[in-house]
Design a protein around this nucleic acid. Structure first.
Length: 522
RNA sequence: GCUCCGGUGGUGUAGCCCGGCCAAUCAUGCGGGCCUUUCGAGCCCGCGACCCGGGUUCAAAUCCCGGCCGGAGCACCA
Protein backbone atom coordinates (compact mmCIF):
# COMPACT_ATOMS: atom_id res chain seq x y z
CA UNK A 1 0.00 0.00 0.00
CA UNK A 2 2.90 2.26 0.71
CA UNK A 3 4.19 1.51 -2.73
CA UNK A 4 0.92 2.02 -4.46
CA UNK A 5 0.69 5.43 -2.92
CA UNK A 6 4.28 6.27 -3.68
CA UNK A 7 5.02 4.55 -6.97
CA UNK A 8 8.28 6.38 -7.40
CA UNK A 9 9.80 4.12 -4.78
CA UNK A 10 9.04 1.04 -6.76
CA UNK A 11 12.31 1.06 -8.62
CA UNK A 12 14.18 1.14 -5.37
CA UNK A 13 12.63 -2.03 -4.07
CA UNK A 14 15.49 -4.09 -5.41
CA UNK A 15 18.02 -2.00 -3.57
CA UNK A 16 16.21 -2.28 -0.29
CA UNK A 17 15.41 -5.93 -0.51
CA UNK A 18 18.69 -7.33 0.90
CA UNK A 19 18.40 -5.03 3.88
CA UNK A 20 14.85 -6.10 4.51
CA UNK A 21 15.85 -9.73 4.33
CA UNK A 22 18.57 -9.18 6.86
CA UNK A 23 16.19 -7.55 9.30
CA UNK A 24 13.64 -10.27 8.82
CA UNK A 25 16.29 -12.80 9.71
CA UNK A 26 17.19 -10.91 12.83
CA UNK A 27 13.59 -10.78 13.89
CA UNK A 28 13.19 -14.47 13.22
CA UNK A 29 16.07 -15.17 15.53
CA UNK A 30 14.51 -13.33 18.41
CA UNK A 31 13.22 -15.42 21.26
CA UNK A 32 9.56 -15.74 21.95
CA UNK A 33 9.92 -13.63 25.03
CA UNK A 34 11.52 -10.82 23.12
CA UNK A 35 8.85 -10.97 20.49
CA UNK A 36 6.11 -10.74 23.04
CA UNK A 37 7.75 -7.67 24.52
CA UNK A 38 7.85 -6.01 21.16
CA UNK A 39 4.33 -6.84 20.19
CA UNK A 40 3.08 -5.40 23.43
CA UNK A 41 4.51 -2.10 22.42
CA UNK A 42 3.05 -2.15 18.97
CA UNK A 43 -0.56 -1.36 19.29
CA UNK A 44 -2.04 -2.65 16.15
CA UNK A 45 -4.68 -0.23 15.20
CA UNK A 46 -6.64 -1.73 12.46
CA UNK A 47 -8.51 0.90 10.67
CA UNK A 48 -12.15 0.08 10.97
CA UNK A 49 -13.00 0.33 7.34
CA UNK A 50 -16.63 1.10 7.34
CA UNK A 51 -18.28 -0.53 4.47
CA UNK A 52 -19.56 2.29 2.46
CA UNK A 53 -21.64 1.59 -0.59
CA UNK A 54 -21.01 4.08 -3.33
CA UNK A 55 -22.48 4.87 -6.67
CA UNK A 56 -20.18 5.42 -9.62
CA UNK A 57 -20.24 8.59 -11.68
CA UNK A 58 -22.26 10.78 -9.43
CA UNK A 59 -22.52 14.17 -11.05
CA UNK A 60 -25.49 16.35 -10.31
CA UNK A 61 -28.67 15.17 -8.70
CA UNK A 62 -28.96 11.44 -8.41
CA UNK A 63 -32.29 10.10 -9.61
CA UNK A 64 -33.19 6.50 -8.93
CA UNK A 65 -36.20 4.39 -9.45
CA UNK A 66 -37.68 1.25 -7.99
CA UNK A 67 -39.84 -0.44 -10.57
CA UNK A 68 -41.89 -3.38 -9.36
CA UNK A 69 -44.62 -5.12 -11.25
CA UNK A 70 -47.91 -4.68 -9.37
CA UNK A 71 -48.90 -8.31 -9.25
CA UNK A 72 -48.69 -8.70 -5.49
CA UNK A 73 -47.14 -7.17 -2.40
CA UNK A 74 -43.40 -6.84 -2.02
CA UNK A 75 -41.31 -9.74 -0.82
CA UNK A 76 -37.83 -10.06 0.56
CA UNK A 77 -36.41 -10.23 -2.95
CA UNK A 78 -37.93 -6.87 -3.89
CA UNK A 79 -36.59 -5.40 -0.71
CA UNK A 80 -33.10 -5.45 -2.08
CA UNK A 81 -33.82 -3.16 -5.01
CA UNK A 82 -36.07 -0.98 -2.91
CA UNK A 83 -33.57 -0.57 -0.09
CA UNK A 84 -30.56 -0.02 -2.30
CA UNK A 85 -32.31 2.65 -4.32
CA UNK A 86 -33.58 4.33 -1.20
CA UNK A 87 -30.20 4.18 0.46
CA UNK A 88 -28.47 5.87 -2.43
CA UNK A 89 -31.26 8.39 -2.90
CA UNK A 90 -30.87 9.45 0.72
CA UNK A 91 -27.12 9.28 0.70
CA UNK A 92 -26.76 11.57 -2.30
CA UNK A 93 -29.72 13.68 -1.46
CA UNK A 94 -31.32 12.49 -4.64
CA UNK A 95 -34.73 11.41 -5.74
CA UNK A 96 -36.54 8.11 -5.38
CA UNK A 97 -39.15 7.33 -7.97
CA UNK A 98 -41.59 4.49 -7.57
CA UNK A 99 -42.58 3.28 -10.98
CA UNK A 100 -45.29 0.69 -11.20
CA UNK A 101 -44.71 -1.41 -14.28
CA UNK A 102 -48.13 -2.59 -15.23
CA UNK A 103 -47.84 -2.99 -18.97
CA UNK A 104 -48.73 -6.63 -18.89
CA UNK A 105 -52.42 -6.83 -17.99
CA UNK A 106 -52.04 -10.54 -17.36
CA UNK A 107 -49.78 -9.74 -14.47
CA UNK A 108 -51.62 -6.93 -12.80
CA UNK A 109 -53.43 -7.26 -9.51
CA UNK A 110 -55.46 -4.23 -8.62
CA UNK A 111 -54.79 -4.41 -4.89
CA UNK A 112 -51.06 -4.56 -5.45
CA UNK A 113 -50.72 -0.85 -6.20
CA UNK A 114 -51.66 0.01 -2.66
CA UNK A 115 -49.94 -2.94 -1.09
CA UNK A 116 -46.64 -1.92 -2.62
CA UNK A 117 -46.99 1.58 -1.25
CA UNK A 118 -47.77 0.23 2.19
CA UNK A 119 -44.80 -2.10 2.07
CA UNK A 120 -42.46 0.74 1.14
CA UNK A 121 -43.84 2.88 3.92
CA UNK A 122 -43.28 0.08 6.35
CA UNK A 123 -39.67 -0.13 5.21
CA UNK A 124 -39.44 3.58 5.89
CA UNK A 125 -38.68 4.32 2.28
CA UNK A 126 -39.68 7.73 1.14
CA UNK A 127 -41.15 7.88 -2.33
CA UNK A 128 -40.58 11.25 -3.96
CA UNK A 129 -42.62 10.55 -7.03
CA UNK A 130 -44.90 7.78 -8.18
CA UNK A 131 -45.30 6.91 -11.83
CA UNK A 132 -47.69 4.36 -13.20
CA UNK A 133 -46.84 3.11 -16.64
CA UNK A 134 -50.38 2.42 -17.69
CA UNK A 135 -50.98 6.17 -17.40
CA UNK A 136 -48.31 6.75 -19.97
CA UNK A 137 -49.34 4.61 -22.91
CA UNK A 138 -49.75 7.67 -25.13
CA UNK A 139 -46.19 8.65 -24.41
CA UNK A 140 -44.94 5.26 -25.50
CA UNK A 141 -47.09 5.40 -28.62
CA UNK A 142 -45.65 8.75 -29.52
CA UNK A 143 -42.05 7.61 -29.24
CA UNK A 144 -42.84 4.34 -30.92
CA UNK A 145 -44.35 6.16 -33.84
CA UNK A 146 -41.30 8.33 -34.06
CA UNK A 147 -39.12 5.28 -34.43
CA UNK A 148 -41.37 3.96 -37.18
CA UNK A 149 -41.15 7.30 -38.93
CA UNK A 150 -37.40 7.16 -38.71
CA UNK A 151 -37.47 3.73 -40.26
CA UNK A 152 -36.01 2.19 -37.12
CA UNK A 153 -39.00 0.09 -36.19
CA UNK A 154 -41.53 -1.87 -38.18
CA UNK A 155 -44.77 -3.69 -37.80
CA UNK A 156 -44.20 -7.41 -38.05
CA UNK A 157 -47.00 -9.73 -39.04
CA UNK A 158 -44.99 -12.91 -38.81
CA UNK A 159 -45.98 -15.55 -36.34
CA UNK A 160 -43.75 -15.85 -33.35
CA UNK A 161 -42.45 -19.20 -34.54
CA UNK A 162 -41.64 -18.21 -38.09
CA UNK A 163 -39.89 -15.06 -36.97
CA UNK A 164 -37.82 -16.98 -34.49
CA UNK A 165 -36.81 -19.47 -37.11
CA UNK A 166 -35.51 -16.76 -39.40
CA UNK A 167 -33.99 -14.85 -36.55
CA UNK A 168 -32.02 -17.82 -35.35
CA UNK A 169 -30.48 -18.06 -38.79
CA UNK A 170 -29.71 -14.37 -38.74
CA UNK A 171 -32.16 -13.64 -41.52
CA UNK A 172 -34.61 -10.73 -41.71
CA UNK A 173 -38.30 -11.40 -42.16
CA UNK A 174 -40.22 -9.91 -45.05
CA UNK A 175 -41.79 -7.25 -42.85
CA UNK A 176 -38.45 -5.63 -42.17
CA UNK A 177 -38.27 -3.90 -45.53
CA UNK A 178 -41.78 -2.58 -45.60
CA UNK A 179 -41.78 1.12 -46.33
CA UNK A 180 -42.47 3.67 -43.69
CA UNK A 181 -45.86 4.76 -44.94
CA UNK A 182 -47.16 1.26 -44.92
CA UNK A 183 -45.76 0.68 -41.45
CA UNK A 184 -47.50 3.79 -40.17
CA UNK A 185 -50.75 2.64 -41.62
CA UNK A 186 -50.47 -0.72 -39.93
CA UNK A 187 -49.48 0.99 -36.70
CA UNK A 188 -52.65 3.09 -36.82
CA UNK A 189 -54.65 -0.02 -37.38
CA UNK A 190 -53.01 -1.61 -34.38
CA UNK A 191 -53.99 1.31 -32.20
CA UNK A 192 -57.52 1.27 -33.55
CA UNK A 193 -57.89 -2.38 -32.88
CA UNK A 194 -58.33 -3.24 -36.52
CA UNK A 195 -55.58 -5.82 -36.64
CA UNK A 196 -54.43 -8.53 -34.38
CA UNK A 197 -51.47 -10.79 -33.93
CA UNK A 198 -48.85 -8.28 -34.91
CA UNK A 199 -45.97 -6.68 -33.07
CA UNK A 200 -43.75 -3.71 -33.60
CA UNK A 201 -40.11 -4.61 -33.79
CA UNK A 202 -37.06 -2.49 -33.37
CA UNK A 203 -34.46 -2.76 -36.07
CA UNK A 204 -31.32 -3.75 -34.30
CA UNK A 205 -28.75 -6.04 -35.83
CA UNK A 206 -30.24 -9.10 -37.43
CA UNK A 207 -26.89 -10.82 -37.10
CA UNK A 208 -26.28 -9.87 -33.50
CA UNK A 209 -24.45 -12.67 -31.71
CA UNK A 210 -27.23 -12.87 -29.17
CA UNK A 211 -30.31 -13.97 -31.13
CA UNK A 212 -32.74 -12.45 -28.64
CA UNK A 213 -31.40 -9.02 -29.44
CA UNK A 214 -32.10 -9.37 -33.14
CA UNK A 215 -35.05 -7.10 -33.92
CA UNK A 216 -36.68 -7.54 -30.55
CA UNK A 217 -40.32 -6.49 -30.16
CA UNK A 218 -41.28 -3.19 -28.54
CA UNK A 219 -45.08 -3.28 -28.79
CA UNK A 220 -47.57 -6.08 -28.71
CA UNK A 221 -51.29 -6.52 -28.61
CA UNK A 222 -52.80 -7.92 -25.44
CA UNK A 223 -56.52 -8.06 -25.03
CA UNK A 224 -56.73 -9.13 -21.43
CA UNK A 225 -58.71 -6.66 -19.35
CA UNK A 226 -56.50 -4.18 -17.56
CA UNK A 227 -57.88 -2.83 -14.28
CA UNK A 228 -56.64 0.66 -15.03
CA UNK A 229 -56.80 1.16 -18.79
CA UNK A 230 -59.77 -0.85 -19.89
CA UNK A 231 -60.14 -0.96 -23.66
CA UNK A 232 -56.68 -0.04 -24.90
CA UNK A 233 -54.75 -3.03 -25.90
CA UNK A 234 -51.51 -2.05 -27.51
CA UNK A 235 -48.88 -2.34 -24.80
CA UNK A 236 -45.19 -1.59 -24.91
CA UNK A 237 -42.75 -4.28 -23.90
CA UNK A 238 -40.49 -3.47 -20.99
CA UNK A 239 -37.47 -3.03 -23.20
CA UNK A 240 -39.20 -0.07 -24.72
CA UNK A 241 -41.17 1.49 -21.89
CA UNK A 242 -38.32 1.21 -19.42
CA UNK A 243 -35.69 3.19 -21.32
CA UNK A 244 -38.28 5.74 -22.42
CA UNK A 245 -39.33 6.33 -18.84
CA UNK A 246 -35.86 6.18 -17.41
CA UNK A 247 -34.84 8.89 -19.80
CA UNK A 248 -37.94 11.05 -19.43
CA UNK A 249 -37.77 10.84 -15.65
CA UNK A 250 -34.10 11.72 -15.67
CA UNK A 251 -32.95 8.51 -14.01
CA UNK A 252 -29.19 8.66 -13.55
CA UNK A 253 -28.48 5.21 -12.17
CA UNK A 254 -30.31 2.03 -12.95
CA UNK A 255 -29.82 -0.64 -10.31
CA UNK A 256 -30.99 -4.08 -11.22
CA UNK A 257 -30.15 -7.73 -11.14
CA UNK A 258 -27.84 -9.52 -13.50
CA UNK A 259 -30.83 -11.18 -15.06
CA UNK A 260 -31.41 -7.87 -16.80
CA UNK A 261 -28.04 -7.65 -18.49
CA UNK A 262 -29.47 -8.61 -21.86
CA UNK A 263 -32.32 -6.18 -21.39
CA UNK A 264 -29.83 -3.45 -20.74
CA UNK A 265 -28.12 -4.26 -23.97
CA UNK A 266 -31.43 -4.12 -25.78
CA UNK A 267 -32.42 -0.87 -24.17
CA UNK A 268 -29.22 0.79 -25.22
CA UNK A 269 -30.52 0.70 -28.78
CA UNK A 270 -33.37 2.95 -27.75
CA UNK A 271 -30.99 5.47 -26.22
CA UNK A 272 -28.87 5.34 -29.29
CA UNK A 273 -31.74 5.85 -31.70
CA UNK A 274 -33.04 8.86 -29.81
CA UNK A 275 -29.56 10.12 -29.18
CA UNK A 276 -30.04 10.18 -25.45
CA UNK A 277 -27.41 9.95 -22.74
CA UNK A 278 -27.11 6.50 -21.31
CA UNK A 279 -27.55 6.25 -17.55
CA UNK A 280 -25.25 4.27 -15.32
CA UNK A 281 -26.31 0.64 -15.25
CA UNK A 282 -25.44 -1.45 -12.23
CA UNK A 283 -26.17 -5.14 -12.25
CA UNK A 284 -25.98 -6.92 -8.96
CA UNK A 285 -25.92 -10.66 -8.50
CA UNK A 286 -28.95 -12.87 -8.15
CA UNK A 287 -30.28 -13.17 -4.63
CA UNK A 288 -31.18 -16.74 -3.87
CA UNK A 289 -33.32 -17.12 -0.81
CA UNK A 290 -33.23 -20.42 1.01
CA UNK A 291 -36.41 -22.46 1.38
CA UNK A 292 -38.90 -19.74 0.63
CA UNK A 293 -41.69 -19.46 -1.87
CA UNK A 294 -41.37 -16.07 -3.49
CA UNK A 295 -43.06 -16.42 -6.83
CA UNK A 296 -45.95 -14.01 -6.69
CA UNK A 297 -48.07 -16.08 -9.04
CA UNK A 298 -47.45 -19.20 -6.99
CA UNK A 299 -48.38 -17.45 -3.78
CA UNK A 300 -51.49 -16.03 -5.35
CA UNK A 301 -52.50 -19.46 -6.51
CA UNK A 302 -51.89 -20.81 -3.03
CA UNK A 303 -54.06 -18.14 -1.51
CA UNK A 304 -56.90 -18.82 -3.94
CA UNK A 305 -56.68 -22.53 -3.25
CA UNK A 306 -56.62 -21.97 0.47
CA UNK A 307 -53.13 -23.34 0.99
CA UNK A 308 -52.05 -20.00 2.41
CA UNK A 309 -54.15 -17.85 4.66
CA UNK A 310 -53.25 -14.70 2.74
CA UNK A 311 -50.35 -12.57 1.60
CA UNK A 312 -49.21 -12.38 5.20
CA UNK A 313 -49.18 -16.13 5.84
CA UNK A 314 -46.07 -16.47 7.97
CA UNK A 315 -44.71 -19.28 5.86
CA UNK A 316 -44.19 -16.81 3.04
CA UNK A 317 -41.34 -14.45 2.29
CA UNK A 318 -43.53 -11.40 1.75
CA UNK A 319 -42.71 -8.32 3.75
CA UNK A 320 -46.10 -8.43 5.37
CA UNK A 321 -45.49 -11.98 6.50
CA UNK A 322 -42.18 -10.95 8.03
CA UNK A 323 -43.83 -7.99 9.66
CA UNK A 324 -46.40 -10.28 11.17
CA UNK A 325 -43.69 -12.41 12.68
CA UNK A 326 -42.04 -9.47 14.35
CA UNK A 327 -39.23 -8.86 11.92
CA UNK A 328 -38.40 -5.18 12.05
CA UNK A 329 -38.11 -3.20 8.84
CA UNK A 330 -34.79 -1.88 10.07
CA UNK A 331 -33.45 -5.42 10.10
CA UNK A 332 -34.45 -5.96 6.51
CA UNK A 333 -32.98 -2.64 5.52
CA UNK A 334 -29.73 -3.43 7.21
CA UNK A 335 -29.26 -6.88 5.79
CA UNK A 336 -29.87 -5.60 2.30
CA UNK A 337 -27.14 -3.05 2.78
CA UNK A 338 -24.88 -5.75 4.20
CA UNK A 339 -25.42 -7.81 1.11
CA UNK A 340 -24.71 -4.80 -1.04
CA UNK A 341 -24.43 -4.58 -4.81
CA UNK A 342 -21.63 -6.92 -5.76
CA UNK A 343 -22.11 -8.82 -9.01
CA UNK A 344 -21.63 -12.29 -7.54
CA UNK A 345 -24.74 -14.27 -6.72
CA UNK A 346 -25.76 -14.38 -3.10
CA UNK A 347 -27.47 -17.01 -1.06
CA UNK A 348 -29.66 -15.23 1.42
CA UNK A 349 -29.57 -16.93 4.78
CA UNK A 350 -32.36 -16.26 7.25
CA UNK A 351 -29.91 -16.75 10.11
CA UNK A 352 -28.23 -13.50 9.26
CA UNK A 353 -31.51 -11.60 9.20
CA UNK A 354 -32.58 -13.12 12.48
CA UNK A 355 -29.36 -12.13 14.16
CA UNK A 356 -29.84 -8.53 13.12
CA UNK A 357 -33.46 -8.55 14.16
CA UNK A 358 -32.68 -10.10 17.50
CA UNK A 359 -30.38 -7.26 18.31
CA UNK A 360 -33.24 -4.84 17.66
CA UNK A 361 -35.98 -6.56 19.58
CA UNK A 362 -34.04 -8.17 22.41
CA UNK A 363 -33.91 -5.04 24.49
CA UNK A 364 -37.61 -4.34 24.13
CA UNK A 365 -39.11 -7.79 24.46
CA UNK A 366 -40.61 -8.80 27.78
CA UNK A 367 -39.82 -12.31 28.93
CA UNK A 368 -42.39 -14.92 29.79
CA UNK A 369 -42.53 -18.62 30.40
CA UNK A 370 -44.37 -20.63 27.81
CA UNK A 371 -44.73 -24.36 28.20
CA UNK A 372 -45.44 -26.12 24.95
CA UNK A 373 -46.53 -29.74 24.93
CA UNK A 374 -47.29 -29.21 28.60
CA UNK A 375 -47.14 -32.07 31.05
CA UNK A 376 -48.04 -31.87 34.68
CA UNK A 377 -45.31 -32.37 37.23
CA UNK A 378 -46.06 -33.00 40.88
CA UNK A 379 -43.25 -31.98 43.18
CA UNK A 380 -43.16 -33.80 46.46
CA UNK A 381 -41.75 -32.41 49.66
CA UNK A 382 -41.80 -28.85 48.47
CA UNK A 383 -43.27 -25.85 50.25
CA UNK A 384 -45.43 -23.28 48.60
CA UNK A 385 -43.46 -20.32 47.34
CA UNK A 386 -43.79 -17.10 45.46
CA UNK A 387 -41.17 -16.37 42.85
CA UNK A 388 -40.69 -12.90 41.47
CA UNK A 389 -38.94 -12.44 38.20
CA UNK A 390 -38.05 -9.49 36.07
CA UNK A 391 -39.92 -9.07 32.86
CA UNK A 392 -36.60 -8.21 31.31
CA UNK A 393 -33.30 -9.31 32.82
CA UNK A 394 -31.56 -5.99 32.20
CA UNK A 395 -34.45 -3.60 32.49
CA UNK A 396 -35.81 -3.23 35.93
CA UNK A 397 -38.26 -0.58 34.79
CA UNK A 398 -40.29 -3.21 32.96
CA UNK A 399 -41.41 -4.53 36.31
CA UNK A 400 -41.78 -7.99 37.69
CA UNK A 401 -43.90 -11.02 37.13
CA UNK A 402 -44.98 -13.47 39.72
CA UNK A 403 -45.13 -17.25 39.82
CA UNK A 404 -46.91 -18.98 42.69
CA UNK A 405 -45.55 -22.42 43.31
CA UNK A 406 -48.00 -24.68 45.07
CA UNK A 407 -46.73 -28.15 44.34
CA UNK A 408 -47.88 -28.75 40.79
CA UNK A 409 -46.42 -27.25 37.65
CA UNK A 410 -46.43 -27.70 33.92
CA UNK A 411 -43.18 -28.40 32.16
CA UNK A 412 -42.29 -29.18 28.56
CA UNK A 413 -43.03 -32.83 28.12
CA UNK A 414 -40.15 -34.02 25.98
CA UNK A 415 -37.50 -32.31 28.07
CA UNK A 416 -37.91 -34.63 31.02
CA UNK A 417 -36.27 -37.96 31.69
CA UNK A 418 -36.67 -40.25 34.61
CA UNK A 419 -33.99 -40.25 37.27
CA UNK A 420 -32.48 -36.93 36.29
CA UNK A 421 -32.08 -33.74 38.21
CA UNK A 422 -33.59 -30.54 36.91
CA UNK A 423 -33.39 -26.97 37.98
CA UNK A 424 -36.74 -25.27 37.84
CA UNK A 425 -35.68 -21.80 36.87
CA UNK A 426 -35.51 -19.40 39.76
CA UNK A 427 -37.08 -21.99 42.04
CA UNK A 428 -35.21 -25.07 43.19
CA UNK A 429 -33.80 -28.40 42.12
CA UNK A 430 -35.89 -31.51 41.71
CA UNK A 431 -35.22 -35.10 40.82
CA UNK A 432 -37.66 -36.86 38.54
CA UNK A 433 -38.76 -40.15 39.99
CA UNK A 434 -41.37 -41.39 37.61
CA UNK A 435 -43.06 -40.41 34.38
CA UNK A 436 -46.57 -41.57 33.69
CA UNK A 437 -49.57 -39.49 32.79
CA UNK A 438 -47.98 -37.05 35.13
CA UNK A 439 -44.42 -36.55 36.19
CA UNK A 440 -43.56 -37.32 39.79
CA UNK A 441 -40.59 -35.38 41.05
CA UNK A 442 -39.10 -34.81 44.45
CA UNK A 443 -37.68 -31.64 45.88
CA UNK A 444 -33.93 -31.93 46.15
CA UNK A 445 -32.36 -28.62 47.13
CA UNK A 446 -32.47 -24.88 46.73
CA UNK A 447 -28.91 -24.09 45.90
CA UNK A 448 -28.29 -23.22 42.28
CA UNK A 449 -24.72 -24.42 42.64
CA UNK A 450 -25.91 -27.93 43.28
CA UNK A 451 -27.80 -27.87 40.04
CA UNK A 452 -24.69 -26.72 38.24
CA UNK A 453 -22.55 -29.32 39.89
CA UNK A 454 -24.95 -32.03 38.84
CA UNK A 455 -25.20 -30.56 35.36
CA UNK A 456 -28.92 -30.33 35.81
CA UNK A 457 -30.82 -28.91 32.88
CA UNK A 458 -32.36 -25.58 33.75
CA UNK A 459 -35.95 -25.67 32.65
CA UNK A 460 -38.83 -23.29 32.89
CA UNK A 461 -42.17 -24.10 34.41
CA UNK A 462 -45.53 -22.59 35.22
CA UNK A 463 -47.99 -23.25 38.03
CA UNK A 464 -50.92 -25.37 36.94
CA UNK A 465 -53.49 -22.79 37.86
CA UNK A 466 -53.88 -19.33 36.48
CA UNK A 467 -52.61 -20.13 33.02
CA UNK A 468 -53.07 -18.60 29.59
CA UNK A 469 -53.70 -20.72 26.54
CA UNK A 470 -51.28 -19.96 23.77
CA UNK A 471 -50.93 -21.08 20.21
CA UNK A 472 -47.73 -20.28 18.35
CA UNK A 473 -47.66 -20.31 14.57
CA UNK A 474 -44.27 -21.36 13.31
CA UNK A 475 -42.89 -20.31 9.91
CA UNK A 476 -42.51 -23.98 9.08
CA UNK A 477 -46.27 -24.32 9.24
CA UNK A 478 -46.08 -26.19 12.50
CA UNK A 479 -48.23 -25.06 15.41
CA UNK A 480 -47.07 -25.19 19.02
CA UNK A 481 -49.72 -25.19 21.68
CA UNK A 482 -49.39 -24.80 25.38
CA UNK A 483 -49.69 -22.48 28.33
CA UNK A 484 -48.07 -19.25 29.30
CA UNK A 485 -47.68 -17.92 32.81
CA UNK A 486 -50.23 -15.75 34.57
CA UNK A 487 -48.71 -12.35 33.79
CA UNK A 488 -48.62 -13.06 30.11
CA UNK A 489 -52.19 -11.85 30.19
CA UNK A 490 -51.01 -8.26 30.06
CA UNK A 491 -49.46 -8.41 26.59
CA UNK A 492 -51.09 -6.53 23.80
CA UNK A 493 -51.62 -7.38 20.19
CA UNK A 494 -48.65 -6.51 18.01
CA UNK A 495 -46.26 -6.61 20.94
CA UNK A 496 -43.07 -8.59 20.52
CA UNK A 497 -42.10 -10.76 23.47
CA UNK A 498 -39.66 -13.52 24.22
CA UNK A 499 -40.76 -16.86 25.49
CA UNK A 500 -37.73 -17.94 27.44
CA UNK A 501 -35.88 -20.91 26.03
CA UNK A 502 -38.21 -20.82 23.07
CA UNK A 503 -37.83 -17.68 21.03
CA UNK A 504 -39.16 -14.30 20.08
CA UNK A 505 -42.76 -14.00 19.01
CA UNK A 506 -45.16 -11.31 17.99
CA UNK A 507 -48.63 -11.29 19.52
CA UNK A 508 -50.87 -11.68 16.54
CA UNK A 509 -54.32 -12.01 18.02
CA UNK A 510 -55.70 -12.12 21.47
CA UNK A 511 -59.02 -12.77 23.16
CA UNK A 512 -60.23 -14.13 26.47
CA UNK A 513 -59.90 -17.66 25.26
CA UNK A 514 -56.49 -17.87 23.67
CA UNK A 515 -53.56 -15.86 22.41
CA UNK A 516 -52.16 -16.47 18.94
CA UNK A 517 -48.49 -15.71 18.48
CA UNK A 518 -46.29 -15.74 15.41
CA UNK A 519 -42.80 -17.05 15.84
CA UNK A 520 -39.97 -14.83 14.71
CA UNK A 521 -36.78 -16.66 15.59
CA UNK A 522 -34.86 -17.86 18.56
C1' G B 1 -26.46 -25.97 -27.08
C1' C B 2 -25.50 -20.61 -27.69
C1' U B 3 -24.56 -15.70 -25.20
C1' C B 4 -23.16 -13.22 -20.87
C1' C B 5 -21.75 -13.02 -15.67
C1' G B 6 -19.47 -14.73 -11.35
C1' G B 7 -16.36 -17.91 -7.76
C1' U B 8 -12.85 -14.98 -0.26
C1' G B 9 -14.43 -19.60 6.17
C1' G B 10 -21.08 -23.05 7.03
C1' U B 11 -23.57 -18.03 5.62
C1' G B 12 -23.16 -12.75 4.43
C1' U B 13 -19.28 -9.18 3.73
C1' A B 14 -14.27 -6.06 3.24
C1' G B 15 -9.94 -6.16 0.17
C1' C B 16 -9.54 -6.98 -6.31
C1' C B 17 -10.14 -1.48 -10.43
C1' C B 18 -4.54 1.26 -8.77
C1' G B 19 -0.03 -6.13 -6.85
C1' G B 20 3.47 -5.11 -1.37
C1' C B 21 1.25 -2.52 5.96
C1' C B 22 -3.47 -9.36 3.77
C1' A B 23 0.15 -15.05 8.15
C1' A B 24 -6.92 -11.51 4.77
C1' U B 25 -11.86 -7.39 7.69
C1' C B 26 -16.37 -7.31 10.18
C1' A B 27 -20.84 -9.84 11.32
C1' U B 28 -23.31 -14.35 11.76
C1' G B 29 -22.52 -19.57 12.72
C1' C B 30 -20.03 -23.38 15.34
C1' G B 31 -16.88 -24.99 19.80
C1' G B 32 -15.29 -23.82 24.66
C1' G B 33 -15.26 -20.71 28.97
C1' C B 34 -17.24 -16.83 32.22
C1' C B 35 -21.13 -14.16 34.51
C1' U B 36 -25.82 -13.48 36.13
C1' U B 37 -32.60 -13.95 39.67
C1' U B 38 -30.31 -19.04 36.91
C1' C B 39 -32.23 -17.92 29.24
C1' G B 40 -31.84 -20.63 23.39
C1' A B 41 -29.89 -13.70 26.66
C1' G B 42 -25.04 -11.09 27.67
C1' C B 43 -19.53 -11.10 27.92
C1' C B 44 -14.75 -13.49 26.65
C1' C B 45 -11.67 -16.83 24.02
C1' G B 46 -11.17 -20.13 20.04
C1' C B 47 -12.43 -22.56 15.02
C1' G B 48 -12.93 -21.55 10.13
C1' A B 49 -11.74 -18.96 3.56
C1' C B 50 -8.69 -16.38 -1.14
C1' C B 51 -12.04 -22.82 -6.77
C1' C B 52 -7.75 -25.43 -9.41
C1' G B 53 -3.44 -25.20 -12.60
C1' G B 54 0.00 -22.37 -15.21
C1' G B 55 2.13 -17.45 -16.40
C1' U B 56 3.98 -12.26 -15.36
C1' U B 57 6.71 -10.15 -11.03
C1' C B 58 11.59 -9.31 -6.15
C1' A B 59 6.24 -9.77 -4.60
C1' A B 60 -0.42 -12.25 -6.71
C1' A B 61 -6.71 -12.91 -3.19
C1' U B 62 -5.46 -8.75 -6.41
C1' C B 63 -2.88 -8.74 -13.27
C1' C B 64 -2.92 -12.54 -17.72
C1' C B 65 -4.18 -17.50 -19.83
C1' G B 66 -6.50 -22.30 -19.36
C1' G B 67 -9.63 -25.55 -16.67
C1' C B 68 -13.43 -26.69 -13.17
C1' C B 69 -17.78 -25.24 -10.71
C1' G B 70 -22.06 -22.11 -10.09
C1' G B 71 -25.68 -18.65 -11.98
C1' A B 72 -28.53 -15.81 -15.50
C1' G B 73 -30.56 -14.90 -20.34
C1' C B 74 -32.00 -17.18 -24.99
C1' A B 75 -40.79 -14.59 -24.61
C1' C B 76 -45.61 -10.96 -28.50
C1' C B 77 -43.31 -11.27 -19.02
C1' A B 78 -41.12 -7.80 -15.84
Amino acid sequence: MFLSENPEYRKKVKEILPIVEKIVEEVNNLSEKELNEISKNIKIERKKKKKDLVLPNVKDKVILRFAPNPSGPLHIGHARAAVLNDYFAKKYNGKFILRLEDTDPKRVLEDAYDMIKEDLEWLNIKVDETVIQSDRLDIYYKYGEELIKKGLAYVCECSQESFRELRNKGLPCKCRDRDIEENLELWKKMLNGEIDNVVVRLKTDIKHKNPSIRDFPIFRIEKTHHPRVGDKYVYPLMNFSVPIDDHLLGVTHVLRGKDHIVNTEKQKYIYKYFNWDIPEFIHYGILKIEDTVLSTSQIYKGIIEGVYSGWDDIRLGTLRALKRRGIKPEAIYKIMLDIGIKPADVKFSWENLYAINKELIDKEAKRFFFVWNPKKMVVKDADKRVVKLRKHPDRKEFGERELLFNGEVYVVNDEIEEGKMYRLMELFNVVVEKIDDIIIARYHSDDFKIAKKNKAKIIHWIPVDNINKVKVLMPSGEIKEGYAEKDFREVKEDEIIQFERFGFCRIDKKDDEITICCYAHK
